[in-house]
Design a protein around this nucleic acid. Structure first.
Lengths: 137, 137, 137, 137
DNA sequence: GTGGTCTAGACCACA
DNA sequence: GTGGTCTAGACCACT
């Protein structure tokens, strides 16, 4: 369910963040569900509890998960997406970088679109609205 | 032409790499054109020459630019795109990350597609082939 | 009457303490009134009896409530305010923190004063003396 | 300049945060100024670099300070105050707590107002606008 | 030199 | 049991 790749030079705590996000987006864990405890997940991933803790803290700051004192960590039930100007710029920068990388790999527009759609369906499929209130009804 | 943002938490040498790539892709500098010297660019960007040097070295390793001893640094005239399995995986990982970020910002598939196309046109438009057949001729 | 917010990162037992204090200050429960039993309140708040017990113990240590063995817990009828040097320092520290937070939120002196007065009236209004001379009579 | 109190049961990293904020608000360090390095400050306060780092990270998240890769940490030059609903609620909660504490110490409205004004002048005096753009002109 | 990441291991407050 | 804080010490990427 949650995976990290020790060969990946991306920081472990960020891999955990993305892994949790992915599990939530894919619906493998639902709003309100309990996440593994810091210690549990640390054992599962054979990493340090502090590293998991750091990941959980960042996820909480994004309002993606919530901590209930002494009880554990849970998927937020009321996540409200919001677009900050800074985030939008970062997103565009990332997309630009992706497009340039793809271009230098010789991929054409259709190729990139293909990958894009493939990954989109894998992640979100037609659950595109699964974080808005209407859907929780 | 080349720009960096010292507040951006993306490494400056990588920002330089991306800036050079972007200029090439947009056709602002053409294959065979001379790039500013390491010292010149360092002054322009008010950064450390070592940082510029690091960027140039990496660009050379990608065969995007070429250094001719004593003459300077030039945009490669014979760039041949190639798709390595490792790079493809990285690209997909980045796209996945972008999609998840976009999703958590509340963007729908059409929104993301819109941004994607906007940036694609800004970067490449119908110059999609300017590093392949036409250039190798 | 008594409320807690499990998502609030403020400890639940302290939330209970503040909730009880607030009810007393607002006059919703009067000196001599019986408080719900530990178990009752735990059920009401869907929390652990130990947590309620901890809150009651602390309130008793402050002489704000009193426990009569076998009879229950009551609002103290003879609360005598006292200013200890340590408490005064803590209070000033808290106020300083509030002022800094408000400043970084862009609030001006008048704004803060406005909030301050609003909350003061909501809490105490002109009941400013209800724990001192009038009550000790 | 920066001080912590090891007897204070408030977490050290939060004390550092408040200490830095206070120094900035009082104008002891100005926008653009370099803060002591993580290691320096850790030595000064005889605490662990990780603890200082945690404080700096949170301050950066608040946009109060900025990190320039490899160069150090600086007071932000373009802090823009913003009021989020959540923060406003927290502020009001804190003020409410302060008022209740003061009340139970026997302080009257005038007493609290006195302390409030004293601390406000000590901190901000007539520099009330020192974080807005007009003032940096 | 700078900050960022990670580990191992400790202690604490809270529910 | 839970997460939060802190230390000591290591290694790394970046400028």
């Amino acid at each position: 369910m949650f995976t990290i790749d020790s060969k990946n030079n991306f920081p472990i705590y960020k891999q955990i963040i993305n892994s949790v996000k992915e599990s939530i987006i894919k619906g493998m864990i639902l709003p309100g569900d309990k996440l593994p405890s810091v210690r549990e997940l640390a054992k599962l991933l054979t990493t340090n509890p502090n590293t998991v803790s750091k990941a959980y803290n960042e996820l909480e700051r994004m309002h993606i998960i919530e901590t209930l004192r002494g009880k554990g960590t849970f998927v937020a039930i009321d996540y409200i997406p919001k677009i900050e100007a800074g985030n939008m710029l970062k997103l565009k920068d990332e997309i630009k970088k992706v497009l340039m990388d793809a271009h230098y790999m010789g991929l054409k527009k259709d190729d990139i679109n293909g990958i894009f759609n493939e990954l989109y369906d894998e992640l979100l499929n037609d659950k595109d609205t699964n974080i808005t209130k209407e859907d929780t009804v």
